[in-house]
């Protein structure tokens, strides 16, 4: 469709974050600007035309992709009468913030928000440790059963916790953990995906660095802490962000594992707000709930989107 003759770097880069020692052939050298060779025989006009076409396509797609968000925001600012009225277009005719106040109160969102932060932070902290340790073991040690164990870790990617709701629910009840935040967090304390990612990243670190550290008398944990982790931060960050997004939005397992609002995350809160609309769906209220739930992650992403995509590109996920 498009015949771009330039292949400029994906993004501008923050030189302070340039990773060292990423495996050759990987996304290591985004930071260096590649020359933009021009193809002989293609006129400037035809290039512009092609680029224009690509941009128009992209713009149309982007607008289409944004519609659900914009439509939700518009509805969340609207009064109940306008929602069903014939003439209502995109701009709220009677903008009001009252839906947000009502949704916030009806939906108990203050509790859910705190719960979500606790749950997500708890998972990420523990995962950070477990995937680093396991990734290090698989990247830099030979031991009996390594292949089998690594396959088992990869299998966890294919068989997620939610697929096993029935037995996992039973396990949680026999541990008397149903309706606790632990029940939501525990199954996610290990991650096959994260382990795989960190293994790939650690394998890209030149072993000489570890040798040097050992000569200096470093213990294994010091090597991990001061040699490996600083050099693989993009991978860890990319994993952390994917994991945050996943657990912030996770719904099915928390719904099953908990009963009371004091333990449930915001996604469940939103679903309950929707489910409690039996005597008339108040779309303006529900859309305010949707916006409340979506906004925190969206703002974080807007601020960090450049760094996020960059770190992803450099994480060696491929």
């Amino acid at each position: 469709m498009t015949t771009e003759s330039t292949a400029e770097p994906l993004l501008d880069d923050d030189p302070g974050e340039a990773p060292a020692g990423i495996a050759p052939g990987s996304a290591a050298d985004l930071a260096t600007t590649r020359p933009a060779p021009t193809r002989a025989g293609v006129s400037l006009w035809s290039r512009l035309l092609r680029q224009g076409t690509a941009n128009v396509l992209l713009l149309a797609a982007a607008v289409f992709w944004l519609i659900p968000l914009l439509w939700s925001i518009a509805a969340s600012l609207e009064g109940p009468v306008q929602i069903t009225a014939d003439g209502w277009g995109w701009l709220p005719t009677h903008p009001t913030g009252v839906n947000f106040v009502n949704a916030w109160n009806d939906g108990n969102f203050s509790i859910y928000l705190v719960n979500t932060v606790i749950i997500v932070a708890g998972i990420i902290l523990v995962q950070g440790v477990t995937v680093s340790l396991a990734g290090y073991a698989f990247a830099r040690f030979d031991f009996a059963g390594k292949r089998l164990l690594f396959t088992l870790y990869l299998l966890q990617i294919m068989v997620p916790v939610t697929a096993l709701v029935l037995p996992n629910y039973q396990t949680m009840s026999s541990l008397h953990l149903i309706d606790t935040k632990w029940a939501i967090m525990l199954p996610y304390f290990a991650s096959g995906f994260g382990t795989f990612l960190m293994r790939q990243a650690f394998r890209g670190v030149p072993p000489e660095l570890e040798d040097a550290a050992i000569l200096d008398g470093a213990a294994w944990w010091q090597t991990v802490r001061y040699v490996y982790l600083p050099l693989t931060r993009p991978s860890l960050a990319a994993f952390a962000l994917v994991s945050i997004a996943f657990h912030w939005n996770d719904f099915f397992w928390p719904l099953i594992a908990t009963n009371s609002s004091s333990n449930r995350p915001i996604s469940v809160g939103l679903a309950l707000l929707t489910a409690s609309q039996e005597s008339g769906t108040q779309w303006n209220l529900i859309m305010a709930g949707v916006v409340i739930v979506v906004l925190p992650l969206l703002i974080v992403f807007l601020i960090f989107q450049r760094a996020f995509i960059n770190s992803f590109a450099r994480s060696g996920i491929k």
């Binding site: 944004l66 912030w248 996604s267 739930v293 979506v294 969206l298 989107q305």
Partner: peptide, 21 residues
């Protein structure tokens, strides 16, 4: 942002918004 943001929307929220659409 336009292409990636849906990933950051919980599926229950996305489904609710689409149900309204």
């Amino acid at each position: 942002v336009a292409f990636f943001y849906p990933t950051l929307v919980p599926m229950v929220g996305a489904a609710t918004a689409w149900a309204f659409i």
